[in-house]
Design a protein around this nucleic acid. Sequence first.
DNA 1: CATTTGATGTTCT
DNA 2: GAACATCAAATGC
Length: 218
Amino acid sequence: MSRDAAPRARRSRLGGPLPHAFYDRPTEIVSRELLGAVLECTTVEGVTRGVIVETEAYLGPHDPACHAVAGLTSRTAHLFGPPGRSYVYLIYGMYWCFNAVTRERGHGSAVLVRAVSPTDGLELMRRRRPKVKRDRDLTNGPGKLCLAMGIVGAMSGASLRSGPIIIRTGSAVPDADVVVTPRIGITQAAEWPLRYLVRDDPYVSPTPASFARTSYTP
DNA sequence: CATTTGATGTTCT
DNA sequence: GAACATCAAATGC
């Protein structure tokens, strides 16, 4: 058969949703493994997608920087599980931040997605963020990516397999390309190395120079 | 490039 | 009343 023969049924270029069980593991592990996965958000305006290039782990009530320390409130309800759903919260009264809930009901642990590298819906992202000059500034921060992808609080609590926000399998990022640093923008437990990012990726949010001594490769 | 500052309003003490 | 898992613009090299 010539190599120009009719191609076999086209495999979707897109990976399927990550299995629910993927999230039901330690949050540090999920944070590391979400690098390279695809974040997708669908709204009436259209679909946007991007490869996850930066995450942070928030471990639960024993983590002073985690919202779970406040206990079960109306704000944190979705943080307390079950795993495999979104937890979207408002920060500084202005910006949404997106998390993937990782642990069983009642635990209160999640991965904050801090940056993605856009793959689909770039025009829609630009339309939603008309003042942004460089594409790399569309999604290189947790509030920015929610603005560009249309992620809002109403999406909190939805399944990440079938809801408006879906996390799909992507391509694995080797350990040599992963950098671990302290988390950004917190004061409690500020030294804990729980931020994961893809080395040299232009869509990663800026890393403070002071992190040089505490950054490493897994 | 790095650092500083104002915007903005919900949440929890 | 203080804190806040941020961003964009402005300033100073």
